[in-house]
Design a protein around this nucleic acid. Structure first.
Length: 851
RNA sequence: GCCGCUGUGGCGAAAUGGCAGACGCAACGGACUUAAAAUCCGUUGGGCUUAAAAGGCCCGUGCCGGUUCGAGUCCGGCCAGCGGCACCA
């Protein structure tokens, strides 16, 4: 077995250039004020979603997005931009902690090792990161500022007048703790016994933990919450200013779940209490002939009549016994119980029975609804089950009143004296105005979004900069940051919900009568603002320098990062949380833009060769390092870009890698050939000669296509075009050095090592003083060589191609028509028919319509 | 159930409403070679016509319909796969 000969010496070229770039600080982006900073250059901030450095190392999904951004970063530098292209580590997280539980190795050690591994691997792919800006969220120099931002959130409230965050000192009420953006609440939370921690709603999928798939149960606990709901409206609305995929915007909008409607107050017969309901269809109020409260609704106890008590208690017991999953199971039948009390419908003073039913959720709206069986599917189902009257109050176009039952569409109000005949939108307005005048209702907006459960019972996360004294919390001073977690012997969760930090008794004791908060922040905390730290990673006195922030995060757009690339899995979690923090900091005057990420692109997942998701289970995992060893980093980069559109899901193919590797080897052999001794030297075909017209043409066609394709992130077709270019030169007896220089510049963002090496070889043989390839400017496309005197014209008869002929460029339509009609093939097909019409498209085609 | 995305050769894919299948893979044939690998050249959607080739004709972008001189592309209605949400009033 002899080792297969390398198609070209990438194994020598690639480490060589990586060292040169590293030592020459080739990709360092100077900050304002720094040496070599050129204020005339526009900035371009291009960001990858930074990885969690797992023990498994890189998988092929990482280099996909990273290569795309690297191509753009290299391209933008050559276009004269000051490019910020950083990389760092989302280093707090559960796996390191669970590894610590198993082995006793401190998570900081595990994390440091994993980061080292990741960094080595990333460097072997030749990414042009500014490694001087590397950050880790688990580094006290970083999380000091994560804790500092928490303090800003803690010490703020949203002023309902301005709808913006302000310092808590501007709050005039007597209980500031009730309005803080960070607050403590005893809430039903998602408790995961196997992980020993609570989880955010977003981290629970089908009743199981997103990480590990362990069962999650509802349980009330005292937790830290962030008041993200105060930003719900802006988080939904300001999406419109962003260049994000519409699908992702929709996902966020649906998650935020804004619905406009009205809150309506119903009086209760024989009681002073009121029941408030929320509805999106106040116009259907005449059809409201019963009312439903959530079983947990606080008024249930008070309103239940003596004779119904036993029944109601029994029903509520059944409900509590159910898991969340069972309760939300759509397929099941409606259940409920009449509580023996009546409400008064404000529009007609009718007495309507009050029920409880588990299809009404305490957590949404007011936890109470008016039952409109005529025009709500769920109410209809409920009314049928319990034999309540069903009244149509909206007539849907094209249907009779009775047919309109069960229909949720807009229509015309009927059986509704105040609004009869009005279309739905006007009926809504009129009813709301009428209720408002009576003091029994008002327009209202509700959201599905809940406040963000922000505390975790974990060791490996940021401790809260908070202490407790006499049952009240207050914040640490900024000078007490960073607050470093204590060393622990035992990282295990306590199982009771008490965090592992509570075991460090000395650490917990803050003073005579104050103790530290022992929860830690969730993993999302660091990623909520890491992109800001990249602007000024070493700043010891501020989370980011003002001037640096203005420069990199500024500009004419809504958001500061010019392009953000990462997976769809973060569509609602990370991207929503980061936008929220950003807006708070923006409101407080720390940032120049209201949004963090102007343009977002999601790369598609790479599947295994068997078209399944890559996993150990299927044995279809591809290790990028194996690919690099066999084909080189340039081949890995180009293959991942050549596979298909960036945003699409696509399967891996080793044969495909080989194909791309062959392309790169052909580029190499265009300029190099092997001598008798088996050494590579410059091919004698490469000469300082003028390019032929056809060569100019293909070169400029390639410049044009590659430039446009990089701009539109269509890397697969850019590479196709470069293949076409290389194919065209494969057998050329003379290869003009000027053409090749330009081509290498165009190739260099994709295959930077190969391009740099060949560029150097050309420099050595044709003495130029152009410097290194990375310092070149991106070539301009010249349309002149592409202009021809003649073009091919397609001749069609009745839309079918019958012939193609050459015609002078810009020939007038009359001439094209003449050519078409004179063409023998066309004549053949119109013989015996009448020509009805001739359509001529200049420089393209003629279509003769005949029958 | 609702919302979104995607359906094109044996495979990955390409195509501002204007030549469907660029480019790559695989396959087949050829050149070079003692031979193989590598490399280079060529063929390659299906069917019909033909002794064969050349040439020609017909069909073909998930299915059905529409708009248009012309539809993979636009519109309407289905089907399938993937993803998200799921009693949100």
């Amino acid at each position: 077995m002899s080792e297969r000969r390398k198609p070209y010496p990438f194994d020598q070229i690639e480490p060589k250039w990586q060292t040169i770039w590293d030592e020459g600080r080739a990709f360092h982006a100077p900050n304002p004020g720094e040496q070599n900073f050129d204020p005339k250059k526009p900035k371009y901030y291009i960001l990858d979603m930074f990885p969690y450095p797992s023990g498994a190392g890189l998988h092929v999904g990482h280099p996909e997005g990273y290569t795309a951004t690297d191509i753009i970063a290299r391209y933008k530098r050559m276009c004269g931009f000051n490019v910020l292209h950083p990389m760092g580590w989302d280093a707090f997280g559960l796996p390191a902690e669970q590894y610590a539980i198993k082995t006793g190795q401190h998570p900081a050690v595990t994390t440091r090792d994993n980061i080292g591994k990741f960094k080595t691997q990333l460097k072997r792919i030749g990414f042009s990161y500014d490694w001087e800006r590397e950050i880790s969220t688990a580094d006290p120099r970083f999380y000091r500022w994560t804790q500092w931002i928490f303090l800003q959130i803690y010490n703020s409230w949203v002023n309902p007048q301005t709808k913006k965050a302000e310092p808590i000192s501007t709050y005039r009420g007597d209980d500031p703790d009730s309005v803080r953006l960070a607050y403590v609440a005893e809430v039903p939370v998602n408790w995961c016994p196997d992980l020993g921690t609570v989880l955010a709603n977003e981290e629970v999928i089908d009743g199981k933990s997103e990480v590990g798939g362990f069962p999650v149960v509802r349980r009330p606990m005292r937790q830290w919450m962030l008041r993200i709901t105060a930003y719900a409206d802006r988080l939904a609305d300001e999406l419109k200013d962003l260049d994000w995929p519409e699908g992702i915007k929709l996902l966020q909008r649906n998650w935020i779940g804004r619905s406009g409607g009205a809150e309506i107050e119903f009086k209760i017969e024989n009681y002073d209490e009121l029941i408030r309901v929320f509805t999106t269809r106040p116009d259907t109020i005449y059809g409201a002939n019963y009312m439903v409260l959530a079983p947990e609704h606080p008024l249930v106890d008070r309103l239940t009549s003596a004779d119904k008590r036993a029944e109601v208690a029994k029903y509520r017991e059944q409900i509590t016994a159910k898991s969340d999953l069972e309760r939300t199971d759509l397929a099941k039948e409606k259940t409920g119980a009449f509580i023996g009390a009546y409400a008064i419908n404000p529009v007609n003073d009718q007495k309507i029975p009050i029920w409880i039913a588990d299809y009404v959720l305490m957590g949404y709206g007011t936890g109470a609804i008016m039952g409109v069986p005529g025009h709500d599917e769920r109410d209809l189902e409920f009314a049928r089950k319990f034999e309540l009257e069903i009244i149509p109050v909206v007539q849907v176009p094209g249907k009779t009143p009775d047919e309109s039952i069960g229909c949720l569409d807009d229509g015309t109000a009927i059986n509704s004296p105040l609004i009869n005949g009005l279309p739905t939108s006007e009926a809504k307005k009129k009813i709301v105005a009428w209720l408002e005048e009576k003091g029994q209702g008002r327009a209202d907006v509700r959201f599905k979004l809940r406040d963000w459960l922000f505390s975790r019972q974990r060791y490996w996360g940021e401790p809260f900069p908070v202490v407790w004294e006499n049952g009240k919390h207050h914040s640490l001073g900024e000078s007490e940051l960073p607050l470093v977690p204590p060393e622990l012997e035992d990282y295990k969760p306590t199982g009771t919900g008490e965090p592992p930090l509570a075991k460090a008794k000395d650490w917990v004791r803050y003073s005579e009568n104050a103790t530290r908060e022992t929860n830690t922040m969730p993993q999302w905390a660091g990623s909520c603002w890491y992109y800001l730290r990249f602007c000024d990673p070493a700043n010891a006195s501020r989370f980011v320098g003002e001037e640096e922030e203005r420069y990199w995060m500024g500009g004419p757009q809504a958001g500061g990062v010019d392009l953000y690339v990462g997976g769809t899995e973060h569509a609602v979690l990370h991207l929503l949380y980061a936008r929220f923090w950003h807006k708070v900091l923006f409101d407080l005057g720390y940032l120049s833009k209201p949004e963090p990420f102007q343009r977002l692109v999601n790369q598609g997942m790479i599947l295994g060769e068997d078209n399944r998701k890559m996993s150990k289970r299927w044995g279809n995992v591809i290790d990028p390092l194996d690919v690099i060893t066999e084909y080189g980093a340039d081949a890995l980069r180009c293959y991942e870009m050549f596979m298909g559109p960036l945003e699409q899901m696509k399967p891996w193919s080793m044969k495909g890698v080989e194909g791309v590797s062959r392309f790169l080897a052909r580029v190499w052999r265009l300029l190099m050939e092997e001598n008798q001794a088996g050494e590579w030297e410059l091919s004698p075909r490469v000469q300082d000669a003028a390019a032929e017209k056809s060569q100019q043409k293909i070169l400029h066609a390639t410049i044009k296509k590659v430039t446009e394709d990089i701009e539109s992130l269509s890397f697969n077709t850019a590479i196709s075009q470069m293949m076409v270019f290389v194919n065209a030169f494969t057998n050329a007896p003379v290869i003009p050095v000027s053409v090749m220089r330009t081509f290498l510049v165009v190739l260099s963002p994709f295959a930077p090592h190969l391009a740099a090496e060949l560029w150097e070889k050309l420099g050595q043989n044709f003495q130029h003083s152009l410097g290194e390839i990375n310092a070149q400017t991106w070539p301009e496309f010249d349309p002149a060589p592409l202009v021809e005197d003649e073009v091919e014209i397609i001749l069609q008869v009745n839309g079918k191609v019958r012939d193609r002929v050459r015609a002078p460029i810009n020939a007038p339509n009359e001439e094209l028509e003449r050519i078409a009609l004179a063409n023998p093939r066309v004549q053949e097909f119109i013989a015996g028919k009448t020509v009805r019409k001739i359509i001529a498209v200049p420089n393209k085609l003629v279509n003769v319509v005949a029958n």
